[in-house]
Design a protein around this nucleic acid. Structure first.
Lengths: 214, 214
DNA sequence: CGTAAGGTTGAGGTAACTCAAGCTCGGTGG
DNA sequence: CCACCGAGCTTGAGTTACCTCAACCTTACG
């Protein structure tokens, strides 16, 4: 939708403006505004990305129009590695973010361990299956907060950045249920919420939070 | 628990009896009886496997004792590729099966494309997330039957091999709900069930089945 | 013949969904 | 400056779908 992606989409070659060297780490990082599209379903997949700052959501649209968020990628995490050379999902910035592209041409030897990235993402996907099927909504939300908290091991206050509807589409719940669960977590004294949009979490009882996820 | 696995577990080196060549395809295939264990959580991961005949279930046990089946592997599919060198899940034969091991020593160049296997498994895991979160139980069971049917593109009658409780633990449902869904599929004229254990499916209306999964 | 395993069916409870309303906060236009 | 509106979040009331518990059926096996 936004300026520089009009050039990347479909026919244009993503990353081509970044120089001719194959798989070089010299590719410039890309600055993104909140909700800016990185790639869409059906496009050619010619690059993978590493998040430098901010967060990215990877999602699919089901036939019903329902959005399902497969994963959120935080700082240092990789996304965009596909089986084929066509995108099967969408990638958007959750908030202001910066990402670094790495082109993955057919035979190019990329200076990163693709297998390791694939296996890490597989492990993440498997863990998510467990979270989703351990049915209680409160458990799922607690697991989500835990996941976010793990990205800030030192701070006990952090910004989730995702909206309630992001969280809902990630956990397979409704917005209302997510809100009620956050309220319950607040009532239980596990955390408190700050900020205009109530997206800043201050952990009050990390152990209790972890206990809830079991 | 069974004869040849007592030797493979823990201290022994899996596959060592198969010769010294690293990553050779000469490893003999392993015959398994129904419900025989292939590996368990915590063991060293020194081999990956390809299913030759039959089917394998990969699962985890949650703290609550609940079993969750991550995936079923059918003929030609690979399993056992892990991020670290320690098993994070269990693998068992669903029925009589035969699998072929490939050792993956530290620097060994295995004669298979590990990245491709990892990406295929990642795609499977992502697809399963969608199936699980599209909440209706009937949809999930329909998607499961579809998945099984896709393994037999030519036949409209095939043996699922999994028990109702396998299916339940795979889809995050209860046995009773799964049974009720199969009954509904029968009542709708989508399929009929045969065999002593009602595990043989005869597809009557493939299109209707697919329509149910949407 | 009794028991156990796997499957199906019924009745009742409960957690999450749906629909609706209300709140706060910003932005926009009169 | 104030009024209005929309986005995002929360809360309440009613409904529905799945889970739980229980009974029953068939088949295999000791």
């Amino acid at each position: 939708m936004l300026q520089h992606h009009a050039t990347i989409t479909q026919t244009a070659i993503p990353g081509s403006r970044h120089g001719t060297a194959v798989g070089t780490t010299k590719d410039q990082s890309i600055k993104l505004k909140a909700n800016e599209t990185i790639y869409s379903e059906g496009e050619h997949a010619l690059a993978i990305y590493q998040v430098e700052t901010g967060a990215v959501r990877i999602y699919r649209l089901m036939a019903s129009g329902q959005r399902y968020i497969l994963t959120f990628c935080g700082e240092g995490e990789w996304f965009g590695l596909e089986t084929g050379n066509v995108r099967t999902d969408f990638a958007e910035a959750v908030c202001e973010a910066s990402i670094k592209p790495f082109r993955t041409n057919q035979n190019a030897v990329v200076p990163v361990d693709l297998l390791h990235i694939a296996l890490t993402n597989l492990a993440k996907a498997q863990h998510k299956q467990l979270v989703i099927t351990e049915q209680s909504a409160l458990k799922r939300v607690a697991a989500f907060v835990c996941e976010m908290a793990d990205r800030h091991p030192d701070d006990l206050e952090f910004d989730m950045m995702m909206s309630r509807s992001d969280v809902a589409d990630y956990l397979g719940l409704t917005v209302e249920t997510v809100a009620r669960c956050f309220t319950k977590l607040r009532e239980k004294g596990v955390l408190c919420l700050k900020g205009k949009l109530q997206r800043i979490v201050r952990l009050l009882d990390r152990d209790a939070l972890i206990a809830l996820t079991i």
